[in-house]
């Protein structure tokens, strides 16, 4: 294990959210997965920062050239309120309320009280939600768009949505932006159960969804606690791997740099990354 602190990168051009993707005419999909114990919010905060102004102050010292309005960043959450991200991004030096290119789409606050009220009509509710999301994305001009979406698994686990329907909505949404990052919990066997075989089992739909999602992905980022047990100075491990559809087939010349890091996050949001 190397003791030298590392900068986190995803692509061989030393980037996180690569400029090649934002300026392309194609659409890229990434999956950010995590389990109980290792929440990805610290990473998401830095990626939001990277999308908004090109820097990633807490996780990559090289990406220090600020550039305003780098991309329109949309954050769709089924799990957190806007406040959560505004509060946490302060540690990244971001005042999200003041970024005109940051758009938080709240699918959390009224999810089951307004949008999905009657489960017999839930697929209509889901379509409505995605309709709203697409509308908001389209309402903003330009093509340099990055969309984050987290907590979709709740729709599947509550039986509000079916995997194929959700994947269809995701496909449409992906085409409206350059880079779609889907954030999902994947605890096994609570959420991921590849041998589930009945729709009575809520894990079936979400497992089906995730397998199919991974088959479309260009970049996979996985966070989990250390397999070897808890350590006081290590929070967990972060693995970057290439997806089933190589990114070079969509953006020629771009390549995922596969790597495994171990990382440490403190309550003051200081983040350290090391090669495994």
């Amino acid at each position: 294990m190397s003791n030298q602190q590392q900068d986190l990168i995803f692509f061989q051009d030393n980037s996180l959210l690569s400029e090649e993707i934002i300026t392309s005419e194609s659409s890229v999909l990434s999956v950010i997965s995590h389990v109980q114990g290792t929440s990805p919010s610290w990473l998401l905060n830095s990626l939001i920062e990277n999308g908004l102004n090109g820097t990633a102050t807490l996780i990559n010292n090289d990406l220090n050239k600020k550039r305003s309005n780098r991309a329109e960043v949309f954050f769709v959450s089924f799990l957190h309120s806007k406040d959560f991200y505004i509060q946490n991004c302060k540690k990244n030096g971001l005042d999200l309320g003041h970024f005109t290119n940051f758009h938080f789409i709240d699918c959390f606050t009224n999810l089951f009280t307004k949008y999905i009220k009657d489960f017999k009509e839930s697929s209509r509710g889901v379509s409505e939600i995605f309709g709203q999301i697409e509308k908001q994305v389209e309402a903003v001009g330009g093509t340099r768009k990055i969309v984050f979406i987290e907590g979709l698994e709740l729709l599947l686990l509550s039986n509000a949505g079916k995997a194929n329907d959700l994947l269809s909505h995701i496909l449409k949404l992906n085409r409206k932006c350059r880079h779609l990052l889907v954030v999902s919990a994947q605890d096994s066997p609570q959420i991921v159960k590849l041998h589930a075989n009945t729709t009575q089992d809520p894990a079936f739909e979400v497992s089906d969804f995730l397998v199919k999602l991974y088959h479309r992905s260009q970049l996979n980022i996985n966070l989990q606690p250390l397999a070897t047990g808890r350590a006081n100075d290590i929070t967990g491990s972060l693995t970057i791997s290439r997806g089933s559809v190589p990114v070079e087939s969509i953006i020629p010349g771009l390549r995922v740099v596969e790597n495994e890091y171990i990382y440490h996050v403190t309550k003051d949001a200081s983040i350290k990354l090391f090669y495994r």
Binding site: G37, S39, S41, P225, R230, G236, K267
Partner: peptide
């Protein structure tokens, strides 16, 4: 301890078995 309010959501590994 499986999860602690605020801290676990920030990304800290608070599991204490």
């Amino acid at each position: 301890i499986i999860k602690l309010p605020v801290l676990s959501e920030k990304g800290l590994m608070m599991i204490r078995d």
